[in-house]
């Protein structure tokens, strides 16, 4: 299959890296995330010195405006950024692993299109107006789209055909996007709300929503970690994986559950954010080699770094306004992605 750039194929060259180095890398990534998060607390329309930020976290004074900004606005925003970014990174790693497709991502597989359709439908027909009300519809839309994609993939399964799932996802996107457009063209009010939801942003999101949805996030993360080994086996191809004693159907449906939980929650909280799910696993694989448990851990961290970093950058470029994180992540991530793809060893056919 021309399009597959499987971990299996890379395995001999990207020989197993030493665990010590990988743990060190993970620590470095964690430190980077902490640094970016701190910047997220300090920078913005009102820049706050780092010592004041630390003060605000450790020893908050009531009535201090800087402390109020840090604690009430920026901490929730950064926490949401970390959670959503990590969820998207993990989700992308699971998707790319289980479909053996390097361009699998929640956007291309139709999940965000499903979420968008559900949100637009909820705004138009049910009159749901608040961001908090939209959450469950985004979640449900993601889940339905994922089930349709996986379901059709399972009905017509014909052996080793990773590209099929991507094709099905793109077709689901086409259908859902068309329906969404019909609604948007006939209803100006819905378009007014929707166009701000659809770019994906961390501003004005409610920490309460994250808390409500956190069980889903945690469940999704645990399932992802649980299927790490199965993903390694799947990377070798269906036949070999079966030969190694893997129960492929169970692994596939577990991965579907993880994807729905992670991507559904992320999209519900922040709107459809493209690119993190595609790029984070790519970058992770460059560091870790083929072992999926490492890929998953790195993807989560890198996803969080990317999203929080994009959010900070979006606040800096357009002061005193801001550019939505979803837009920044695509504009900054695009060139990085292109550089990574160009730098990769040519894929042999």
């Amino acid at each position: 299959m021309a399009t597959i750039d499987t971990a299996a194929r890379r395995a001999p060259l990207a020989a197993r890296r030493r665990p010590a180095a990988l743990v060190g890398g993970l620590g470095a990534a964690g430190a980077l995330l902490a640094a970016v998060a701190f910047l997220g607390l300090a920078l913005g329309a009102r820049s706050i010195p780092l010592d004041v930020v630390i003060d605000a976290l450790l020893d908050p004074r009531a009535g201090d405006n800087d402390h109020l900004v840090v604690r009430e606005l920026r901490v929730p925003r950064t926490v949401i950024g970390v959670a959503v970014g990590a969820a998207l990174g993990l989700c992308g790693a699971v998707l790319q692993g289980t479909t053996r497709n390097p361009i699998a991502d929640p956007g291309l597989l139709g999940l965000t299109a499903g979420a968008s359709l559900a949100v637009v439908g909820a705004i138009t027909w049910l009159g749901v107006a608040s961001p908090a009300g939209v959450v469950w519809f985004a979640f449900a839309g993601t889940a339905v789209a994922a089930l349709v994609v996986y379901g059709i993939g399972a009905i017509g399964r014909s052996g080793d055909e990773p590209m099929r799932l991507a094709l099905i996802g793109a077709a689901v996107t086409a259908a859902a996007t068309s329906l969404t457009t019909v609604i948007l063209l006939t209803d100006l009010e819905t378009l007014e709300r929707y166009r701000f939801w659809v770019v994906g942003s961390l501003s004005g999101r409610d920490l309460g929503t994250l808390v409500t949805l956190s069980p889903f996030l945690i469940a999704g993360a645990l399932i992802s970690i649980g299927i790490g080994r199965s993903l390694d086996a799947i990377a070798l191809g269906d036949d070999l994986a079966r030969g190694l004693g893997q129960r492929l159907d169970r692994a596939r449906w577990s991965s579907a559950a993880a994807v729905i939980l992670l991507c559904g929650t992320a999209t519900a909280i922040a709107g459809p954010i493209a690119f993190v799910g595609l790029a984070a696993p790519h970058l992770a694989r460059r560091v870790t080699g083929p072992d999926h448990r490492w890929i998953l851990a790195y993807s989560a961290l890198l996803g969080a770094i990317m999203l929080v970093g994009a959010d900070v950058a979006g606040r800096l470029v357009a002061e005193p306004g801001e550019v939505e994180a979803g837009l920044v992540v695509a504009m900054l991530g695009g060139p990085v992605m292109i550089a990574v793809v160009r730098g990769a060893r040519p894929v042999r056919r």
């Binding site: 021309a2 399009t3 750039d5 390097p102 361009i103 956007g107 291309l108 166009r195 659809v198 770019v199 493209a274 690119f275 595609l278 550019v323 939505e324 979803g326 837009l327 920044v328 695509a330 504009m331 991530g333 695009g334 060139p335 992605m337 292109i338 793809v341 160009r342 990769a344 040519p346 894929v347």
Partner: peptide
């Protein structure tokens, strides 16, 4: 594969400009 991946990356960036 390289063409498609880079094309998808370019499409993401173009979509971001459109969204803006």
């Amino acid at each position: 594969p390289r063409f498609v991946l880079i094309g998808v990356a370019v499409a993401f960036m173009a979509h971001a400009v459109l969204g803006y």
